[in-house]
Design a protein around this nucleic acid. Structure first.
Lengths: 221, 221
DNA sequence: AACTCAAAAATTATCTATAATTTGACGCCA
DNA sequence: TGGCGTCAAATTATAGATAATTTTTGAGTT
Protein backbone atom coordinates (compact mmCIF):
# COMPACT_ATOMS: atom_id res chain seq x y z
CA UNK A 1 0.00 0.00 0.00
CA UNK A 2 2.72 2.46 0.98
CA UNK A 3 4.30 2.78 -2.43
CA UNK A 4 8.05 3.01 -2.43
CA UNK A 5 7.83 6.15 -4.54
CA UNK A 6 6.33 7.97 -1.62
CA UNK A 7 8.58 10.05 0.50
CA UNK A 8 9.17 8.77 4.03
CA UNK A 9 7.06 11.58 5.45
CA UNK A 10 4.09 10.45 3.35
CA UNK A 11 4.51 6.83 4.40
CA UNK A 12 4.61 7.83 8.05
CA UNK A 13 1.58 10.09 7.77
CA UNK A 14 -0.43 7.34 6.06
CA UNK A 15 0.45 4.81 8.72
CA UNK A 16 -0.30 7.21 11.57
CA UNK A 17 -3.55 8.30 9.90
CA UNK A 18 -4.56 4.67 9.75
CA UNK A 19 -3.86 4.16 13.41
CA UNK A 20 -5.71 7.30 14.41
CA UNK A 21 -8.74 6.42 12.28
CA UNK A 22 -8.85 2.84 13.51
CA UNK A 23 -8.62 4.04 17.09
CA UNK A 24 -5.33 2.29 17.73
CA UNK A 25 -4.08 5.61 19.08
CA UNK A 26 -6.35 7.29 21.61
CA UNK A 27 -7.73 10.79 21.00
CA UNK A 28 -5.75 13.31 23.01
CA UNK A 29 -2.64 11.17 23.29
CA UNK A 30 0.67 12.75 22.42
CA UNK A 31 2.65 11.93 19.31
CA UNK A 32 6.31 12.25 20.21
CA UNK A 33 8.51 12.86 17.21
CA UNK A 34 11.55 11.01 18.50
CA UNK A 35 9.53 7.94 19.43
CA UNK A 36 7.83 7.83 16.04
CA UNK A 37 11.17 8.42 14.35
CA UNK A 38 12.69 5.53 16.22
CA UNK A 39 9.81 3.22 15.37
CA UNK A 40 10.11 3.99 11.66
CA UNK A 41 13.90 3.97 11.74
CA UNK A 42 14.23 7.52 10.53
CA UNK A 43 15.20 10.86 11.91
CA UNK A 44 12.51 13.20 13.19
CA UNK A 45 12.65 15.52 10.19
CA UNK A 46 10.27 13.46 8.02
CA UNK A 47 8.22 12.76 11.14
CA UNK A 48 7.61 16.46 11.61
CA UNK A 49 6.47 16.74 8.01
CA UNK A 50 4.11 13.81 8.55
CA UNK A 51 2.67 15.67 11.54
CA UNK A 52 1.91 18.68 9.36
CA UNK A 53 -0.05 16.44 7.00
CA UNK A 54 -2.07 14.92 9.83
CA UNK A 55 -2.77 18.41 11.09
CA UNK A 56 -4.10 19.45 7.70
CA UNK A 57 -6.44 16.46 7.64
CA UNK A 58 -7.78 17.39 11.04
CA UNK A 59 -6.51 14.17 12.60
CA UNK A 60 -3.93 15.81 14.85
CA UNK A 61 -3.52 19.12 16.60
CA UNK A 62 -0.21 20.86 17.02
CA UNK A 63 0.62 23.46 19.61
CA UNK A 64 3.89 25.31 19.01
CA UNK A 65 6.67 24.04 21.27
CA UNK A 66 4.24 21.74 23.03
CA UNK A 67 4.01 18.98 20.54
CA UNK A 68 1.32 17.22 18.60
CA UNK A 69 -1.61 15.26 19.93
CA UNK A 70 -4.29 13.15 18.32
CA UNK A 71 -7.35 15.34 17.78
CA UNK A 72 -10.26 14.77 20.11
CA UNK A 73 -13.84 14.89 18.90
CA UNK A 74 -17.32 15.12 20.30
CA UNK A 75 -20.90 14.92 19.12
CA UNK A 76 -20.59 18.48 17.82
CA UNK A 77 -17.84 17.53 15.44
CA UNK A 78 -19.68 14.43 14.28
CA UNK A 79 -22.62 16.67 13.37
CA UNK A 80 -20.33 19.19 11.72
CA UNK A 81 -18.69 16.56 9.52
CA UNK A 82 -22.07 15.06 8.66
CA UNK A 83 -23.41 18.41 7.51
CA UNK A 84 -20.29 19.27 5.55
CA UNK A 85 -20.44 15.91 3.85
CA UNK A 86 -24.10 16.44 3.01
CA UNK A 87 -23.43 19.85 1.47
CA UNK A 88 -20.36 18.80 -0.49
CA UNK A 89 -21.44 15.33 -1.58
CA UNK A 90 -24.69 16.73 -2.93
CA UNK A 91 -22.71 19.29 -4.88
CA UNK A 92 -20.37 16.62 -6.20
CA UNK A 93 -23.23 14.33 -7.17
CA UNK A 94 -24.99 17.05 -9.16
CA UNK A 95 -21.83 17.48 -11.25
CA UNK A 96 -21.05 13.79 -11.44
CA UNK A 97 -24.54 12.66 -12.50
CA UNK A 98 -24.22 13.57 -16.19
CA UNK A 99 -21.00 11.55 -16.41
CA UNK A 100 -22.21 8.42 -14.66
CA UNK A 101 -22.18 5.33 -16.83
CA UNK A 102 -24.00 2.03 -16.45
CA UNK A 103 -20.65 0.46 -15.62
CA UNK A 104 -20.00 2.86 -12.75
CA UNK A 105 -23.51 2.37 -11.38
CA UNK A 106 -22.96 -1.36 -11.62
CA UNK A 107 -19.78 -1.14 -9.59
CA UNK A 108 -21.60 1.06 -7.06
CA UNK A 109 -24.28 -1.60 -6.75
CA UNK A 110 -21.61 -4.22 -6.10
CA UNK A 111 -20.14 -2.01 -3.39
CA UNK A 112 -23.58 -1.70 -1.79
CA UNK A 113 -24.01 -5.47 -1.80
CA UNK A 114 -20.56 -5.91 -0.30
CA UNK A 115 -21.52 -3.46 2.45
CA UNK A 116 -24.77 -5.31 3.17
CA UNK A 117 -22.87 -8.56 3.53
CA UNK A 118 -20.21 -7.11 5.84
CA UNK A 119 -19.98 -8.64 9.27
CA UNK A 120 -17.50 -6.16 10.68
CA UNK A 121 -17.25 -2.36 10.75
CA UNK A 122 -14.02 -2.11 8.82
CA UNK A 123 -15.24 -3.93 5.75
CA UNK A 124 -18.60 -2.12 5.87
CA UNK A 125 -16.80 1.22 6.05
CA UNK A 126 -14.60 0.34 3.12
CA UNK A 127 -17.54 -0.73 0.98
CA UNK A 128 -19.48 2.38 1.96
CA UNK A 129 -16.58 4.65 1.09
CA UNK A 130 -16.15 2.87 -2.23
CA UNK A 131 -19.82 3.47 -3.04
CA UNK A 132 -19.62 7.17 -2.32
CA UNK A 133 -16.34 7.60 -4.18
CA UNK A 134 -17.62 5.77 -7.25
CA UNK A 135 -20.68 7.95 -7.75
CA UNK A 136 -18.90 11.21 -6.87
CA UNK A 137 -15.52 10.90 -8.61
CA UNK A 138 -16.86 11.70 -12.12
CA UNK A 139 -17.64 15.25 -10.99
CA UNK A 140 -14.05 16.00 -11.95
CA UNK A 141 -13.49 18.53 -9.20
CA UNK A 142 -10.21 17.60 -7.53
CA UNK A 143 -10.34 20.10 -4.70
CA UNK A 144 -13.89 19.09 -3.81
CA UNK A 145 -13.02 15.40 -3.89
CA UNK A 146 -9.94 15.93 -1.72
CA UNK A 147 -12.03 17.75 0.89
CA UNK A 148 -14.65 15.00 0.82
CA UNK A 149 -11.91 12.39 1.30
CA UNK A 150 -10.73 14.12 4.46
CA UNK A 151 -14.31 14.20 5.73
CA UNK A 152 -14.66 10.49 5.03
CA UNK A 153 -11.51 9.85 7.06
CA UNK A 154 -13.08 11.76 9.94
CA UNK A 155 -16.35 9.84 9.53
CA UNK A 156 -14.53 6.53 9.61
CA UNK A 157 -12.83 7.57 12.82
CA UNK A 158 -16.13 8.40 14.51
CA UNK A 159 -17.55 5.12 13.31
CA UNK A 160 -14.70 2.95 14.59
CA UNK A 161 -14.77 4.75 17.92
CA UNK A 162 -18.42 3.82 18.40
CA UNK A 163 -18.56 0.42 16.71
CA UNK A 164 -15.16 -0.87 17.72
CA UNK A 165 -16.05 -4.51 17.11
CA UNK A 166 -19.74 -5.41 16.95
CA UNK A 167 -21.61 -4.84 13.73
CA UNK A 168 -25.06 -5.87 12.57
CA UNK A 169 -25.55 -6.54 8.90
CA UNK A 170 -28.30 -4.45 7.36
CA UNK A 171 -29.38 -3.71 3.83
CA UNK A 172 -28.70 -0.16 2.79
CA UNK A 173 -31.97 1.10 1.34
CA UNK A 174 -30.62 4.60 0.80
CA UNK A 175 -27.86 3.43 -1.50
CA UNK A 176 -30.38 1.46 -3.53
CA UNK A 177 -32.73 4.44 -3.75
CA UNK A 178 -29.87 6.67 -4.89
CA UNK A 179 -28.82 4.21 -7.58
CA UNK A 180 -32.37 3.78 -8.78
CA UNK A 181 -32.90 7.54 -9.02
CA UNK A 182 -29.62 7.96 -10.89
CA UNK A 183 -30.56 5.21 -13.34
CA UNK A 184 -33.80 7.05 -14.05
CA UNK A 185 -31.88 10.26 -14.61
CA UNK A 186 -33.55 11.83 -11.59
CA UNK A 187 -30.49 13.64 -10.24
CA UNK A 188 -32.37 15.88 -7.82
CA UNK A 189 -34.06 12.98 -6.12
CA UNK A 190 -30.74 11.13 -5.84
CA UNK A 191 -29.06 14.24 -4.42
CA UNK A 192 -31.85 14.75 -1.88
CA UNK A 193 -31.60 11.16 -0.69
CA UNK A 194 -27.81 11.39 -0.49
CA UNK A 195 -28.05 14.59 1.53
CA UNK A 196 -30.34 12.94 4.05
CA UNK A 197 -28.37 9.72 3.98
CA UNK A 198 -25.02 11.11 5.12
CA UNK A 199 -26.64 13.14 7.88
CA UNK A 200 -28.04 10.07 9.53
CA UNK A 201 -26.23 9.80 12.84
CA UNK A 202 -26.29 6.44 14.54
CA UNK A 203 -26.23 6.09 18.29
CA UNK A 204 -24.82 3.24 20.31
CA UNK A 205 -23.96 2.61 23.95
CA UNK A 206 -20.26 1.97 24.51
CA UNK A 207 -18.26 1.19 27.59
CA UNK A 208 -15.86 3.88 28.70
CA UNK A 209 -12.47 3.29 30.25
CA UNK A 210 -14.00 3.80 33.68
CA UNK A 211 -16.39 0.90 33.08
CA UNK A 212 -19.52 3.03 32.72
CA UNK A 213 -21.64 3.16 29.60
CA UNK A 214 -22.33 6.27 27.61
CA UNK A 215 -23.71 6.85 24.13
CA UNK A 216 -21.39 7.12 21.17
CA UNK A 217 -22.43 8.74 17.92
CA UNK A 218 -21.26 8.23 14.38
CA UNK A 219 -22.22 8.88 10.81
CA UNK A 220 -23.63 5.67 9.34
CA UNK A 221 -23.82 6.59 5.66
CA UNK B 1 1.16 40.30 11.95
CA UNK B 2 3.53 37.35 12.12
CA UNK B 3 3.39 36.89 15.86
CA UNK B 4 6.66 35.97 17.48
CA UNK B 5 4.96 33.06 19.22
CA UNK B 6 4.54 31.35 15.87
CA UNK B 7 7.06 28.79 14.90
CA UNK B 8 9.37 29.78 12.05
CA UNK B 9 7.61 27.35 9.71
CA UNK B 10 4.30 29.12 10.33
CA UNK B 11 5.82 32.54 9.74
CA UNK B 12 7.33 31.40 6.47
CA UNK B 13 4.14 29.75 5.27
CA UNK B 14 2.12 32.89 6.04
CA UNK B 15 4.55 35.10 4.18
CA UNK B 16 4.72 32.78 1.18
CA UNK B 17 0.92 32.39 1.17
CA UNK B 18 0.65 36.15 1.04
CA UNK B 19 2.98 36.35 -1.92
CA UNK B 20 1.21 33.58 -3.79
CA UNK B 21 -2.21 35.10 -3.16
CA UNK B 22 -1.11 38.58 -4.15
CA UNK B 23 0.44 37.22 -7.31
CA UNK B 24 3.96 38.29 -6.34
CA UNK B 25 5.03 34.73 -7.17
CA UNK B 26 3.83 33.41 -10.52
CA UNK B 27 1.72 30.26 -10.73
CA UNK B 28 3.88 27.34 -11.79
CA UNK B 29 7.12 28.85 -10.55
CA UNK B 30 9.35 26.73 -8.38
CA UNK B 31 9.86 27.28 -4.67
CA UNK B 32 13.42 26.23 -3.85
CA UNK B 33 13.88 25.33 -0.23
CA UNK B 34 17.48 26.51 0.07
CA UNK B 35 16.70 29.89 -1.48
CA UNK B 36 13.72 30.44 0.79
CA UNK B 37 15.77 29.28 3.78
CA UNK B 38 18.50 31.77 2.92
CA UNK B 39 16.01 34.61 2.51
CA UNK B 40 14.47 33.95 5.92
CA UNK B 41 17.83 33.22 7.54
CA UNK B 42 16.89 29.75 8.63
CA UNK B 43 17.72 26.21 7.75
CA UNK B 44 15.54 24.39 5.27
CA UNK B 45 13.81 22.22 7.86
CA UNK B 46 11.18 24.81 8.78
CA UNK B 47 10.94 25.73 5.10
CA UNK B 48 9.93 22.20 4.22
CA UNK B 49 7.27 22.31 6.93
CA UNK B 50 5.99 25.58 5.54
CA UNK B 51 5.72 23.92 2.13
CA UNK B 52 3.52 21.20 3.60
CA UNK B 53 1.17 23.87 4.93
CA UNK B 54 0.95 25.62 1.58
CA UNK B 55 0.24 22.27 -0.03
CA UNK B 56 -2.62 21.64 2.38
CA UNK B 57 -4.13 25.03 1.53
CA UNK B 58 -3.98 24.21 -2.16
CA UNK B 59 -1.57 27.06 -2.84
CA UNK B 60 1.39 24.87 -3.80
CA UNK B 61 1.92 21.48 -5.34
CA UNK B 62 4.70 19.15 -4.33
CA UNK B 63 6.12 16.33 -6.39
CA UNK B 64 8.38 13.94 -4.47
CA UNK B 65 12.05 14.56 -5.19
CA UNK B 66 11.13 17.20 -7.74
CA UNK B 67 10.30 20.06 -5.52
CA UNK B 68 7.40 22.36 -4.88
CA UNK B 69 5.76 24.77 -7.28
CA UNK B 70 3.11 27.41 -6.93
CA UNK B 71 -0.25 25.86 -7.91
CA UNK B 72 -1.68 26.89 -11.24
CA UNK B 73 -5.38 27.48 -11.73
CA UNK B 74 -7.91 27.84 -14.51
CA UNK B 75 -11.55 28.76 -15.01
CA UNK B 76 -12.50 25.27 -13.87
CA UNK B 77 -10.96 25.78 -10.48
CA UNK B 78 -12.50 29.22 -10.10
CA UNK B 79 -15.92 27.63 -10.69
CA UNK B 80 -15.10 24.79 -8.30
CA UNK B 81 -14.12 27.15 -5.50
CA UNK B 82 -17.19 29.30 -6.13
CA UNK B 83 -19.52 26.31 -5.84
CA UNK B 84 -17.79 24.96 -2.76
CA UNK B 85 -18.02 28.36 -1.14
CA UNK B 86 -21.71 28.58 -2.00
CA UNK B 87 -22.45 25.18 -0.48
CA UNK B 88 -20.40 25.71 2.67
CA UNK B 89 -21.16 29.36 3.35
CA UNK B 90 -24.88 28.68 3.06
CA UNK B 91 -24.47 25.86 5.58
CA UNK B 92 -22.48 28.10 7.90
CA UNK B 93 -24.99 30.93 7.63
CA UNK B 94 -27.91 28.67 8.54
CA UNK B 95 -26.14 27.76 11.76
CA UNK B 96 -24.82 31.24 12.45
CA UNK B 97 -28.14 33.05 11.93
CA UNK B 98 -29.65 32.26 15.35
CA UNK B 99 -26.53 33.65 17.02
CA UNK B 100 -26.23 36.86 15.07
CA UNK B 101 -26.55 39.99 17.17
CA UNK B 102 -27.35 43.55 16.19
CA UNK B 103 -23.74 44.40 16.97
CA UNK B 104 -22.39 41.81 14.56
CA UNK B 105 -24.78 42.89 11.83
CA UNK B 106 -23.68 46.48 12.45
CA UNK B 107 -20.05 45.55 12.00
CA UNK B 108 -20.96 43.63 8.84
CA UNK B 109 -22.70 46.73 7.52
CA UNK B 110 -19.57 48.76 8.22
CA UNK B 111 -17.51 46.20 6.31
CA UNK B 112 -19.90 46.48 3.37
CA UNK B 113 -19.57 50.26 3.36
CA UNK B 114 -15.79 49.96 3.52
CA UNK B 115 -15.91 47.64 0.52
CA UNK B 116 -18.11 50.03 -1.44
CA UNK B 117 -15.66 52.84 -0.81
CA UNK B 118 -12.58 50.83 -1.81
CA UNK B 119 -10.61 52.13 -4.74
CA UNK B 120 -8.28 49.16 -5.00
CA UNK B 121 -8.76 45.40 -5.14
CA UNK B 122 -6.79 44.62 -2.02
CA UNK B 123 -8.86 46.76 0.30
CA UNK B 124 -12.09 45.63 -1.36
CA UNK B 125 -11.08 42.01 -0.87
CA UNK B 126 -10.25 42.56 2.75
CA UNK B 127 -13.56 44.27 3.44
CA UNK B 128 -15.44 41.55 1.60
CA UNK B 129 -13.69 38.81 3.52
CA UNK B 130 -14.43 40.60 6.78
CA UNK B 131 -18.12 40.75 5.90
CA UNK B 132 -18.33 37.05 5.17
CA UNK B 133 -16.34 36.10 8.24
CA UNK B 134 -18.47 38.26 10.52
CA UNK B 135 -21.78 36.73 9.54
CA UNK B 136 -20.46 33.15 9.38
CA UNK B 137 -18.18 32.90 12.44
CA UNK B 138 -21.05 32.52 14.98
CA UNK B 139 -21.92 29.14 13.45
CA UNK B 140 -19.31 27.78 15.84
CA UNK B 141 -18.10 25.07 13.50
CA UNK B 142 -14.31 25.27 13.48
CA UNK B 143 -13.67 22.72 10.76
CA UNK B 144 -16.20 24.34 8.47
CA UNK B 145 -14.77 27.80 9.08
CA UNK B 146 -11.22 26.61 8.44
CA UNK B 147 -12.26 25.10 5.12
CA UNK B 148 -14.07 28.30 4.15
CA UNK B 149 -10.97 30.31 5.03
CA UNK B 150 -8.87 28.26 2.64
CA UNK B 151 -11.47 28.81 -0.06
CA UNK B 152 -11.38 32.55 0.58
CA UNK B 153 -7.61 32.48 0.14
CA UNK B 154 -8.07 30.78 -3.21
CA UNK B 155 -10.77 33.30 -4.17
CA UNK B 156 -8.50 36.19 -3.32
CA UNK B 157 -5.80 34.73 -5.50
CA UNK B 158 -8.12 34.45 -8.49
CA UNK B 159 -9.28 37.98 -7.89
CA UNK B 160 -5.82 39.53 -7.69
CA UNK B 161 -4.75 37.64 -10.81
CA UNK B 162 -7.60 39.21 -12.78
CA UNK B 163 -7.81 42.66 -11.21
CA UNK B 164 -4.14 43.24 -10.61
CA UNK B 165 -4.52 47.00 -10.26
CA UNK B 166 -7.67 48.60 -11.67
CA UNK B 167 -10.84 48.52 -9.61
CA UNK B 168 -14.18 50.22 -10.02
CA UNK B 169 -16.07 51.12 -6.89
CA UNK B 170 -19.55 49.64 -6.80
CA UNK B 171 -22.19 49.30 -4.14
CA UNK B 172 -22.72 45.75 -3.05
CA UNK B 173 -26.48 45.19 -3.24
CA UNK B 174 -26.17 41.52 -2.32
CA UNK B 175 -24.51 42.26 1.00
CA UNK B 176 -27.26 44.75 1.82
CA UNK B 177 -29.97 42.27 0.85
CA UNK B 178 -28.37 39.60 3.02
CA UNK B 179 -28.16 41.93 6.01
CA UNK B 180 -31.73 43.08 5.55
CA UNK B 181 -33.02 39.50 5.37
CA UNK B 182 -31.01 38.55 8.46
CA UNK B 183 -32.39 41.53 10.37
CA UNK B 184 -35.89 40.37 9.52
CA UNK B 185 -35.05 36.89 10.72
CA UNK B 186 -35.49 35.52 7.22
CA UNK B 187 -32.57 33.11 7.24
CA UNK B 188 -33.58 31.15 4.16
CA UNK B 189 -33.77 34.26 2.02
CA UNK B 190 -30.39 35.43 3.31
CA UNK B 191 -28.89 32.01 2.61
CA UNK B 192 -30.32 31.90 -0.91
CA UNK B 193 -28.91 35.35 -1.71
CA UNK B 194 -25.52 34.39 -0.25
CA UNK B 195 -25.46 31.21 -2.31
CA UNK B 196 -26.07 33.15 -5.51
CA UNK B 197 -23.74 35.94 -4.43
CA UNK B 198 -20.57 33.89 -4.05
CA UNK B 199 -21.17 32.09 -7.32
CA UNK B 200 -21.10 35.29 -9.31
CA UNK B 201 -18.02 35.05 -11.47
CA UNK B 202 -16.70 38.28 -12.87
CA UNK B 203 -14.98 38.45 -16.21
CA UNK B 204 -12.32 40.90 -17.26
CA UNK B 205 -9.88 41.19 -20.15
CA UNK B 206 -6.26 41.12 -19.05
CA UNK B 207 -3.03 41.38 -20.96
CA UNK B 208 -0.94 38.24 -21.02
CA UNK B 209 2.84 38.11 -20.92
CA UNK B 210 2.88 37.77 -24.71
CA UNK B 211 1.05 41.07 -25.10
CA UNK B 212 -2.27 39.59 -26.21
CA UNK B 213 -5.51 39.98 -24.32
CA UNK B 214 -7.56 37.16 -22.90
CA UNK B 215 -10.37 36.98 -20.39
CA UNK B 216 -9.64 36.42 -16.74
CA UNK B 217 -12.26 35.17 -14.32
CA UNK B 218 -12.68 35.59 -10.61
CA UNK B 219 -15.22 35.30 -7.85
CA UNK B 220 -16.50 38.75 -7.00
CA UNK B 221 -18.42 38.10 -3.84
C1' DA C 1 22.35 21.92 -36.68
C1' DA C 2 20.30 18.16 -33.89
C1' DC C 3 21.06 14.35 -30.82
C1' DT C 4 22.93 11.51 -27.56
C1' DC C 5 25.15 10.65 -23.24
C1' DA C 6 28.11 11.52 -19.50
C1' DA C 7 29.82 14.51 -16.06
C1' DA C 8 28.98 18.63 -13.20
C1' DA C 9 25.94 21.52 -10.75
C1' DA C 10 21.89 22.25 -8.37
C1' DT C 11 18.36 20.63 -5.57
C1' DT C 12 15.73 17.57 -2.65
C1' DA C 13 15.52 14.35 1.18
C1' DT C 14 17.44 12.60 5.10
C1' DC C 15 20.58 12.17 9.09
C1' DT C 16 23.23 13.86 13.08
C1' DA C 17 24.10 17.45 16.34
C1' DT C 18 22.79 21.41 19.15
C1' DA C 19 19.92 24.95 21.26
C1' DA C 20 15.64 26.25 23.38
C1' DT C 21 11.57 25.07 25.73
C1' DT C 22 8.47 22.32 28.34
C1' DT C 23 7.32 18.68 31.58
C1' DG C 24 7.72 16.42 35.72
C1' DA C 25 9.82 15.19 39.99
C1' DC C 26 11.68 16.44 44.23
C1' DG C 27 12.22 18.76 48.27
C1' DC C 28 11.16 22.85 50.91
C1' DC C 29 8.28 25.53 53.72
C1' DA C 30 3.87 27.43 55.37
C1' DT D 1 -1.06 18.04 53.69
C1' DG D 2 -0.75 21.10 50.02
C1' DG D 3 1.14 24.72 47.34
C1' DC D 4 5.49 26.53 45.23
C1' DG D 5 9.97 27.05 43.34
C1' DT D 6 13.95 24.83 41.39
C1' DC D 7 16.51 21.57 38.89
C1' DA D 8 16.91 17.46 35.87
C1' DA D 9 15.01 14.86 32.18
C1' DA D 10 12.37 14.76 28.16
C1' DT D 11 10.86 16.91 24.17
C1' DT D 12 10.47 20.25 20.49
C1' DA D 13 12.63 23.28 17.12
C1' DT D 14 16.37 24.61 14.40
C1' DA D 15 21.04 24.25 12.37
C1' DG D 16 24.62 22.06 9.90
C1' DA D 17 26.30 18.02 7.32
C1' DT D 18 25.62 14.17 4.06
C1' DA D 19 23.43 11.17 0.69
C1' DA D 20 20.48 10.62 -3.18
C1' DT D 21 18.14 12.44 -7.04
C1' DT D 22 17.15 15.56 -10.71
C1' DT D 23 18.43 19.13 -13.87
C1' DT D 24 21.71 21.36 -16.61
C1' DT D 25 25.67 21.71 -19.38
C1' DG D 26 28.57 20.61 -22.94
C1' DA D 27 31.57 17.75 -25.65
C1' DG D 28 31.47 14.42 -29.10
C1' DT D 29 28.96 12.25 -32.87
C1' DT D 30 26.07 11.91 -36.82
Amino acid sequence: MASTEDTIAVRISKELADRIISGAIEPGSRLRQDHVAEEFNTSHVPVREAFRRLEAQGLAISEPRRGVRVASFDLGEVREVAEMRAALEVLALRHAAPHLTASILGQAEEATKAGDKSHDVRSWEEANRTFHRLILAPCNMPRLLATIDDLHAASARFLFAAWRSEWETRTDQDHRAILSALRQGNTESAAATLGRHVQWIGQKPVKTASGRTRDAFAIVG
